[in-house]
Nucleic acid binder design. Sequence first.
DNA 1: CAGCTATTTGTTCATTTAGCCAAATAGGCA
DNA 2: TGCCTATTTGGCTAAATGAACAAATAGCTG
Lengths: 98, 98
Amino acid sequence: MPASVQQREFSANFFKALAHSTRIFIVEQLADGEKCVCELTAMIDADMSTVSRHLAVLKNVGIVNSSKRANQVFYSLRTPCILNFLQCIHNPQAQRQD
Amino acid sequence: MPASVQQREFSANFFKALAHSTRIFIVEQLADGEKCVCELTAMIDADMSTVSRHLAVLKNVGIVNSSKRANQVFYSLRTPCILNFLQCIHNPQAQRQD
DNA sequence: CAGCTATTTGTTCATTTAGCCAAATAGGCA
DNA sequence: TGCCTATTTGGCTAAATGAACAAATAGCTG
């Protein structure tokens, strides 16, 4: 699994996108199904513009998808394996798969 | 899997530690077994002090272990599930495990 | 002990990021 | 069309990060 320079850049950007507790929260919320910006904003103590930017960061690396219906934008999780990895982070020993 | 605020902070710091292509490279190299700072520095186009700081970042969140032997410090990977996750990042669809 | 090698840490500078507010955009609906 | 709601984007400031060089530390070895 020797990754190329481009692959490493991509991976680093992917991790960067997850490197914020608000974005982790968003990912966890989307595990239950899609949500619009307004729903997420209601759960997060921050401006809607801030939440929108967090979502843009996640979308930019393909972690979430967005679909516009009426005048709302719904975001959904596109990379559910993040959820597995979150478990591994908190319990590394139990998750060895080699 | 509703995480607590502290868990999310921890996860975010974990991802932050991986959010740099040099640190991804280090993790990949350590997949083959432990390496000392000088070996890693020889592979990376950066100052040894920079590599040492990258290793400190990884160690700080428990991604790597270090053990000093003679006057060298050897680093080893403590969270191998990162390697699985790297694969998932590049091929999300193939890795659904639900 | 003195000198050498490996590593870490202090300092500084440039770049990036997060947040808010305000303004712009887009899609209903009267 | 004109208003209202939902969302994104521009502009700004404060804080965090990454890198290099130099200095400090730690452990050999003569």
